[in-house]
């Protein structure tokens, strides 16, 4: 089992879209995948068609509920753990010292060993929720939008990751995904060039191009493979899944 945090402290870069569609693409390849909605907004669940509030990772972390009883089979080979009703409360936990950061890591231990991949869709913040995700994961996927502020946000994220690597004495495997890419915009291309310069061998070669279809499909609780299976973004995510499985980078 690999635990992968999909993280970027900047909002709007495509974390949830990437998590939902990449996870579904991998599940369609026969991999056993679990996604954890670790953002109190709960939008990963909505994107996968689970709109009604229900117990999830918040209740696992705060009340010690059994993670296996709260998992939802949302597609073949794909299960979802929703955010739950009180995930924001986790940010307010003041007791427990450094162990507050290990809540998720301890909850996942021994519970999802039958899964190939566990994806954690992180919130756009650097609080205790993000800390829990970084404690629990060994690999990081960083979706990046093609604008300047995304580069600025990435610089901050790298500072955060460095602190965790020093604290935990481990080195994360990091891969960047160029999402929301608009090939007709020079700024998008220049952001990608900048990433290639600083992260050689860490960028997944398939870029996810900006399209209205990816903005529409969460409204129907569908991934792109269900909403427009033959579309360009569906091809992009199939390519991304192939990059992910084969370890292809540029």
């Amino acid at each position: 089992m690999s635990i992968i945090a999909v993280i970027n402290q900047k909002g709007g870069v495509g974390k949830t879209t990437t998590t939902a569609n990449l996870a579904h693409a991998l599940a369609r390849c026969g991999k056993k995948v679990t996604v954890i909605d670790f953002d109190p907004q709960g939008q990963l669940a909505v994107a996968l068609g689970v709109a009604a509030p229900r117990q999830g990772i918040a209740e696992v972390l705060l009340e010690g509920k059994d993670i296996r009883q709260l998992l939802l089979e949302v597609r073949d080979n794909l299960q979802l753990l929703t955010a739950g009703c009180r995930l924001m409360d986790v940010e307010q936990v003041r007791e427990g010292g450094v162990q507050r950061g290990e809540l998720l890591s301890r909850s996942l231990q021994d519970n999802l060993q039958d899964q190939d991949y566990v994806f954690i869709d992180c919130p756009p913040s650097s609080g205790l929720l993000a800390a829990n995700a970084l404690f629990a994961c060994e690999e990081i996927l960083i979706p990046m939008a093609g604008d300047f502020l995304a580069l600025q946000g990435l610089s901050h994220l790298l500072g955060t990751l460095r602190k965790f690597e020093q604290l935990l004495q481990k080195k994360y495997k990091k891969r960047l995904i160029m999402s929301r890419f608009c090939s007709t915009r020079r700024i998008s291309r220049q952001v990608l060039n900048t990433l290639c310069k600083h992260f050689p061998g860490q960028i997944m070669p398939t870029v996810i191009r900006e399209t209205v279809l990816l903005a529409e499909c969460p409204g129907f609780g569908k991934t792109i493979f269900e909403y427009r299976p033959g579309s360009r973004p569906a091809r992009d995510f199939r390519g991304l899944a192939d990059d992910f499985l084969t370890g292809r980078v540029m």
Partner: peptide, 12 residues
């Protein structure tokens, strides 16, 4: 950045 004229300063 010399080649990226739309990126005023490179945060990385």
């Amino acid at each position: 950045t010399k080649n990226n004229d739309l990126i005023g300063n490179d945060p990385l």
